[in-house]
């Protein structure tokens, strides 16, 4: 097997797990959003690296070019990036509202405050 082989998928897995770790292990909500973003980028890289064909060029038609990289994943990811930032904005807006309501953006402290309200 030549060098890249399956290496691109391993990079994706490492990135994905990094994002996943941030999401489940960190208590801070902004940092969780950053973790989700990393997770998202790893999925993008996964798609884009699948679409690459050895020796292919960017999918813009031109004379004298035979092999093009697969354009379909590009389309999907193109829209996904913009949708991703829109949903990130929504998540951040939620964080701001949570901060308004509880005065903190740490998950633990929010849990404590809720318990205090119940008792």
């Amino acid at each position: 097997m030549e060098f890249p082989g399956l290496f691109n998928y391993w990079i994706v897995v490492v990135l994905m797990m990094t994002g996943f770790y941030i999401v489940i292990a960190q208590g801070n909500l902004v940092k969780k959003v950053v973790g989700l973003n990393i997770f998202q980028v790893s999925v993008f890289v996964f798609y884009i690296s699948m679409s690459k064909i050895r020796g292919g060029t960017a999918p813009i038609l031109d004379e004298g070019i035979e092999i093009y990289t697969n354009p379909l994943p590009h389309v999907l990811i193109l829209t996904a990036i913009v949708v991703g930032v829109a949903t990130t904005a929504l998540a951040l807006a939620l964080v701001v509202r949570i901060r308004d309501a509880y005065g903190t953006i740490e998950e633990e402290e929010i849990g404590q405050l809720e318990q205090e309200e119940e008792t």
Partner: peptide, 22 residues
């Protein structure tokens, strides 16, 4: 897309200029 981004930015920016209630 342009107006969505600018709207979102306006909203975030207008949050910071209002008096903090805590």
């Amino acid at each position: 897309v342009a107006s969505a981004m600018i709207t979102i930015f306006y909203l975030f920016a207008s949050q910071s200029e209002r008096p903090a209630d805590r």
